[in-house]
Amino acid sequence: MKKAILYINQFFGQIGGEDKADFAPVIREGKVGPAMEFAKNLQADITYTIICGDNFMGSNTDEAVKTILDGLEGKDFDLFLAGPAFQAGRYGVACGTICKAVKEKFNVPVLTSMNVENPGVEMFKSNMLIMEGANIASHMRKDVAAMVKVANKILSGEQVGPATEEGYFPTGRRKEVWLEDKTTAADRMINMLVAKLNGEPFVTELPIPKPDRVPIAPAIKDLKHAKIALVTTGGIVPVDNPDKIQSASATRWGRYDISHTMRLESGVYKTIHAGFDPAAANDDPNVITPVDALQELLKEGYYGSLHPYFYSTVGTGTTQAEAARMANEIVPYLKEDNVDGIIMVST
């Protein structure tokens, strides 16, 4: 039989209420509290129950996580469960924190449950499956049953279905699904159209997510002494594409020395971007990476200095995660050279 380990707080661990919230983590052999409820239908044996005070996890997070991870070392388990945490904020965050740490360290699937109002949902939903739970503990049985249903799929290696069908919070991942009833896109379009025209309810297949913003970096104070770097997603590379950057869905980037290059010559540089007509950029790569203009403006003293390399990759089809990774791989080079600002040319 497969094995699972459950994390719960001091209250459900029968240590005590708010007065025991500073309780340091312990790993108990066997089933404590909600573990009994899980055990009814879970297709795994709950071998250990971890109990930790919510305040201890909240204010001594590193120590709590370390104690638990160290305690789990050498223990054999196929699934890590936490909660359900209902609307209890500190408990929810604790479940998220420990699930994330266990998943990263032991590469074992994790599962928890929280109410939509629990701050742990926003913090951790992109990292793990969080079942959408009730607000108060009187719904324990229902929330545990929902967790067990998904847990058993994970244990048996069965695909866990879409968020709305399984009852967890969307992780931000969207994947294609074959419709069992085989309703064609044309028929779905008609249904949605007629409903929308008649003011009846309909469900879009692509809900528009809320935009994600970063704080604005402060402006360069003195352009005359600023060091500028040039980055492009337009796929400009030396003609032999030495870094083998892919022409779509890129996972690679390259940097090319322009410290003595007054302009990018045709035949020396080209674009490998597959998303547009490459003729113009191949004929004059400076139309995407304005090395010629930057060198001239440097000569004129318009700005201080030019970072000796330009950086290039391809934007089309490239995942945001890959793009973020590539950017973060480039950042150290820019920091090392004390770059003050970046010009990014996108196609």
Partner: peptide, 9 residues
Amino acid sequence: EFEKAGFPI
């Protein structure tokens, strides 16, 4: 990501 790293871009 560049902006998060503190560079005006």
